[in-house]
Structure formats: structure tokens, C-alpha cells
Computed example of a mutant assay.
Amino acid sequence: MKIFALLQEGRQYSLVWPVRPELNPVFLENKVIQLTALGFRYLPGLAVLTAFFQLTMLGSGFTGQILAMMLFILSLPLQGWYWLGVRSSTRLPPALINWCRQLHQQMQEQGVETSAVNEPRHYSDLANTLAVAYKQLDKTFMRPWL
């Protein structure tokens, strides 16, 4: 049952994390979230199409291998959610904790309601802080930090 909890946590983390182009060079989350979304959109069709072509070319004698490949293709987006679930509960390195504290302090100085996270410990806390910052602050607040 832990795997389902991790997948759900990864899905929730992907919904909270702000997918912004300026975060691309610093965090892998943007790329994983975008690739996971693309996977959920296009990979089921690709799996069916691949299975159809393999059945017509190879015949029904390779049904086991065809099903295994279909399941692998269909599991790729789930692997993205799994990675995001593990990442969301990973502890932040000290440099990111300090950066998150400074960002939180900047938000308080500008009068932003910062009830999301007081003390950042995990990447999920960073995601909540960044989400609030992107909603409440102007678009240039990240320039000094990156």
C-alpha cells in the first residue's frame, strides 16, 4: 500500500509545484512534471498502437512480450509520480533551507499571508512556499534568487 501513497503524494506534489521556466535550471521537478503529463496524454495511445503493429507483424505467439511492453509503456507516467512522491518527502539541503527562509521573509516584508509553511524541511514545503510566492508576489521576485 505504500506505493499507492507515494503515487498519490507525487500527484499532489505535481499539482502544487509551480511549473515556471525560470525554475528549470535549478530544479528537475519542472521537467518531470511536464514529461509525466505528456506521458499520461500520449503513452496509452502509443501502447495500443505498438501492440497492434506487433500483433500484426509477429502474430499471437508473442502475446506475452507484447503485453509486457504495453505495461512498461503504460507505467512510465506512474514512474514520474513515484519520483515526485519520493522527492516531495526528501529533506532539503541546508542551502535550500536558507533560501526558502529568505524567500519566506521577503514575502512577509511585502505583506503576503505566509501561512503555508513556517519552517521548511522537505521539498513539499519548498513547493508550497514557491506556489504562494508566485501567486502573491510580482513576476520579478525570483530574479535576485536565481
Rank of each mutant, 00 (worst) to 15 (best):
I73G: 06
V48L: 03
L55C: 06
R20S: 06
N30E: 04
E29P: 03
V19T: 07
N98F: 04
R101Q: 14
F52Q: 04
G111E: 00
S75T: 11
Y42L: 14
P25Q: 15
L38P: 00
R41K: 15
R41L: 14
G39N: 06
V117I: 14
L78I: 04
L38Q: 05
L43W: 02
W83T: 12
G59L: 05
P18D: 06
G39S: 10
L15Y: 10
G39H: 00
Q34E: 14
Q34A: 08
T56Y: 15
F72Y: 15
M69C: 08
I66N: 02
G111N: 04
L78V: 01
L38G: 15
L38C: 09
R87V: 05
F52H: 12
P77M: 12
R41T: 05
Y13S: 02
G45H: 09
T36A: 12
S88K: 06
A51L: 03
G59Q: 10
I97M: 12
W81E: 07
F40R: 07
S75F: 08
V26N: 01
Y13V: 02
R87E: 06
L103G: 13
E22I: 07
H104T: 09
V32E: 02
R20Y: 09
G111Y: 05
I73Q: 02
A116N: 04
K31A: 15
L46S: 00
G80M: 10
S115R: 06
L35P: 03
T56G: 03
M107I: 12
Q106D: 15
M69R: 10
P21C: 05
C100F: 03
N24W: 04
M107Q: 13
Y82F: 08
L78Y: 14
A47H: 07
R20N: 05
G111H: 01
S115C: 10
L67E: 01
G45V: 07
P25I: 10
V26G: 01
Q102E: 13
E22K: 06
S60W: 11
A51F: 00
L15T: 08
M70V: 15
S14E: 02
Y13T: 03
N24G: 08
Q54W: 07
F52Y: 15
P25M: 13
P93A: 15
